[in-house]
Write a protein that binds this DNA or RNA. Sequence first.
DNA 1: TCGTATTTATAGCCTTTGCTATATAGTGTA
DNA 2: TACACTATATAGCAAAGGCTATAAATACGA
Lengths: 142, 142
Amino acid sequence: MPDTPVEPQQQADRFSRARQMQSVALLEDYVEMIGDLLADLGEARVADIAERMGVAQPTATKAIARLKREGLATARPYRGVFLTEAGTALADRVRARHRMVVELLIAVGVPEDVAEMDAEGIEHHVSKRTLAAFEEFLKNRE
Amino acid sequence: MPDTPVEPQQQADRFSRARQMQSVALLEDYVEMIGDLLADLGEARVADIAERMGVAQPTATKAIARLKREGLATARPYRGVFLTEAGTALADRVRARHRMVVELLIAVGVPEDVAEMDAEGIEHHVSKRTLAAFEEFLKNRE
DNA sequence: TCGTATTTATAGCCTTTGCTATATAGTGTA
DNA sequence: TACACTATATAGCAAAGGCTATAAATACGA
């Protein structure tokens, strides 16, 4: 029965939740990016962050300000940006989830480059339970 | 080789693209919702749209204004909201994509209710090619 | 160490998506 | 037909994310 009627309230909640996740998505992207830069280059400069995020430098500065507000990052002016413990943990989770989404997409037949593209948007909406299902699926196929 | 180095520019483009898709997501949600209401109730009132979208009524009014601007909907004040041909076509595409995403999630082991939840956010980031892969996957399994 | 070049921060503006409070227009009934 | 009730529209505000232009701070070579 694909046509179970959906309660308006329930549906509204779903939309609210999706919007909520969206507001977290940017933080996740920045945190992961900063983690990557720290790993790759040993430091995360504002200019590099902006370049890789595809935004203007002041936009990155503002985003970093939000990360600081939320306790995910610290920054010494004109030095680099660093992740707090919470930031590092988030970055790790986000990175793992991203990889899992890409792998799942590839596993169901999505070309690798497309998988990589789409994952960038999809990943933020993948819940814990869905992630667990992905993991299980990848483990059990062959 | 999971560690193909990614060009900064390429990565930036991916993020830009994801942001771009995000701005379309709201339109898609509203259009699909209006389509559903028209089908279910024969009319789409602002109040119903707002309720089901989980937003305040003026927020829905504003979104509808954008739909009109973009040529997806028309509205007669104090009557209902209607979809243009383009709006109807978009609604159909969105609905089909939504169903496909839900089915794919279920097929890889995501519980139905979770699938329905997550699909709400995921669907907007599923490209044509990924959608095609999903379709193929669902057809070929068994 | 000075002075220029690079990098980051600030200022100021725009758009979108929310919100609440309030005005206004339709609807239906007495 | 008039009035109350309901539905929609409008006004005005906030936060987020984006931009360009410009100021300020740092770094580094001469």
